[in-house]
């Protein structure tokens, strides 16, 4: 059973099937960035961001349950040298996900499958931004 639940590609397929099932059953799908807008008081039309926020609270709980079930949960405190990257990275993520809706992980798992033009453009931008930071900071060991 552990081997089955550790087969990464199978778990990715299950994630995708669950996204389709959610759309089939309640006409909603997983979204990432906009789900955090309730943290600055923006709930969206028909409180759709609040719904997405609750879904993503569930993601944290689900990940906790998965990690706990398979002995992978470990409370880790951040090392001081990584904190500036977390703060700056988080800040840029916050700006990126709200400048144009559909940007972020949503583009890869929901937007492109929905044939969203915004998500194709965002994905191109994500590759560019990621590659620039990787080239300047990560590749030479400056940030890792």
């Amino acid at each position: 059973m552990k081997k089955l639940f550790s087969t990464y590609w199978l778990m990715a397929v299950c994630f995708a099937l669950l996204n389709v099932l959610m759309y089939f059953s309640i006409k909603k799908f997983w979204i990432g960035g906009s789900s955090f807008l309730p943290l600055i008081g923006v709930l969206g039309p028909e409180k759709k961001f609040l719904f997405a926020f609750v879904v993503n609270l569930g993601v944290i709980i689900g990940a906790f349950l998965g990690a706990l079930s398979f002995g992978e949960f470990k409370l880790r405190l951040p090392a001081g040298k990584n904190i500036w990257k977390a703060v700056l990275g988080g800040f840029l993520i916050g700006m990126g996900v709200t400048m144009a809706p559909g940007t972020c992980t949503t583009a890869f798992v929901t937007g492109i499958p929905m044939l969203s033009v915004a998500s194709f453009l965002s994905a191109a931008g994500i590759f560019i931004g990621a590659f620039v930071v990787y080239s300047f900071l990560v590749k030479d060991g400056g940030a890792q």
Partner: peptide
């Protein structure tokens, strides 16, 4: 926005 997000992640 994608570039900012990509850099951030």
């Amino acid at each position: 926005s994608g570039a900012l997000f990509g850099a951030g992640i």
